[in-house]
Design a protein around this nucleic acid. Sequence first.
DNA 1: CTTTTTTGCACAATCGATGGTGCAATAACT
DNA 2: AGTTATTGCACCATCGATTGTGCAAAAAAG
Lengths: 352, 352
Amino acid sequence: MTDISKKKATIYDLSILSGASPSTVSAVLNGSWRKRRIKEATAQLIQKLANEHGYKANLQARGLRSSRSGLVGLLLPVHDNRYFSSMAQSFEAQVRSRGQCPLVVSACRDPEEERQVVETLISYSIDELFIAGATDPDGVHKVCEKAGLKHVNIDLPGTLAPSIISDNYEGARMLTQAIIERAQEDGPLSPDDLYLFGGRNDHASHERIRGFRDVKRALLGADPDICIQPTGYSPAMTARAFEAFYEGHGKLPRAFFVNSSINLEGLMRFLALHPHETFADIIVGCYDYDPFGSFLPFPVFMIRQDSEAMITRGFAILDADRGPAITHLVQPTLVPPRTALIGPLDALKDIE
Amino acid sequence: MTDISKKKATIYDLSILSGASPSTVSAVLNGSWRKRRIKEATAQLIQKLANEHGYKANLQARGLRSSRSGLVGLLLPVHDNRYFSSMAQSFEAQVRSRGQCPLVVSACRDPEEERQVVETLISYSIDELFIAGATDPDGVHKVCEKAGLKHVNIDLPGTLAPSIISDNYEGARMLTQAIIERAQEDGPLSPDDLYLFGGRNDHASHERIRGFRDVKRALLGADPDICIQPTGYSPAMTARAFEAFYEGHGKLPRAFFVNSSINLEGLMRFLALHPHETFADIIVGCYDYDPFGSFLPFPVFMIRQDSEAMITRGFAILDADRGPAITHLVQPTLVPPRTALIGPLDALKDIE
DNA sequence: CTTTTTTGCACAATCGATGGTGCAATAACT
DNA sequence: AGTTATTGCACCATCGATTGTGCAAAAAAG
């Protein structure tokens, strides 16, 4: 603080200033000094000097020596999405509170990129890795395994490492039931009136589709395959699917289940091209929560996945060290239309 | 790849395997081998061995020696917001395409936290830093300065380093004009019918408020102070401001300008407590773009800030090395209601 | 067949911290 | 006073790369 020197102070500088050896300085500054039986007075002197000179340990050097970096990684498919960005937010908070440094990266749902990004993180000797929504969790697992890196899967399960995911089946059941009941308030609902858009060949989509179909069959008696319209996690493809349906039927289905908020963005693209009065009576369910998505001009039921709880569980599992490769389910909650939930931002103090 | 050894290979391992010295191996693997006049055959042998053993440089060691890490930091106020998360998304892409590793962190709009987080990043020897939306850019600047870290401000300007920000004044003018014109379609608008909610004591808010007031005065002839309601960047506080207005007037203002999407979330919280029919005729302008925010059940004009361009400019400035501490303006665009823009996600390939 | 030049590489110091080991000086016991 | 225990710290190897320097061997020049 007081000091104006250009270069960053090292333990060697403090060693000279204090008259102690570098190893003593190191011990004092990394907290191991009691164990090393350093005199209290010596420690205080060194700490005083360190403060005066704004000493900060070089974490690359420390990491090199100790082969730990204090970095904890979170691998996301994308940032630009409320589900994942709020996961990033909770992740950061939890990592920081453990005295480590969060490293959030995205890999664009590309299996090869996922592995490469993780290789890079490993080159920085990260200590732990959360693999969220990976397209190929087991591929990433192998990379981690080889490097001895502790890791868990979040959101999409793997078979080789512990996984913490939403209870997609139950969530989809809740959501499907909610939109059916709501749609039936406007009159009887035929199986052809209820569609599902979005999702692809991943575990979450499968489970959600399974939940959707089970409830639909139970409540509406039938479940034609045509009502399932996978589009990938792409707004553009989803918009195309809505457009195609619209061209064929002159309207949208009375009610539909949208696999994620990313797919819901596809619906927005479709809506932008059509006057909204035309679709004033649709009922939508979206497997994801977005505060604005909840207030669209038609009823939108949403599912809020508890990413904060998943991260917490993830740390618990990593701390417990080498848990079995089982899948832990976290319950999501059904969010009725027009609901503004509080989120991680509310934890922030914000002065006016 | 082929290799099954437990530990990561180092240049020393490859040195033994190839019969070359560690320095030769190093030179081959970091690309400086031509400069060092290493025989082509030697280089190829070493590269082959490196591939076979899945060699990856230890970046902490490299960073320690060269005092560069290949890490580029982006300091955000928060993740959980479309503006900043899409900034993170473009940032990542650009950093990766430059062969570096992105490090995105948030500091919760807390000046002390901002400085500490940056100190931590510096301890990892990051090479460059983008300071986005910092509460105290100049405080952060000083920390960077002392460490000789190249940096630029994004979104909120500082006085000591180059800054790249939205043209908030022009953006606010466009937005204000758009909502006034739209509101006047429903009949004459009095100055008391047009409010501004959100924002606080930062440069962006000041400029937006200035733009708002200038246009309002020009078009509506007056601009009572009461119509400016700063709430900070907090959904909860913003909701309270709407609630207070509603209690006093039995309705919301006919038209209003919301300072950011975070404040717009405050409007959602208010709306959740009231039947939306009551507010079917409000006209809203929001300084930020959110794809779902654009489709609320009343007209929402939005401003899309070009975060991608800001990042690009930022790199240009950093590459030009030590630009003057001037402020560069990036033009935002006005987004009419019910518009679904494509975003960084559309760059992703997504197989069905 | 020398002398000079070029080629190809090895050596060793260094970045800044960590942690095992060993050795004085002091304190505690006979 | 002589012996043993304890305290307090210094020394040094080490983590894995980078890079300036130097020196043989090979090639080119004379």
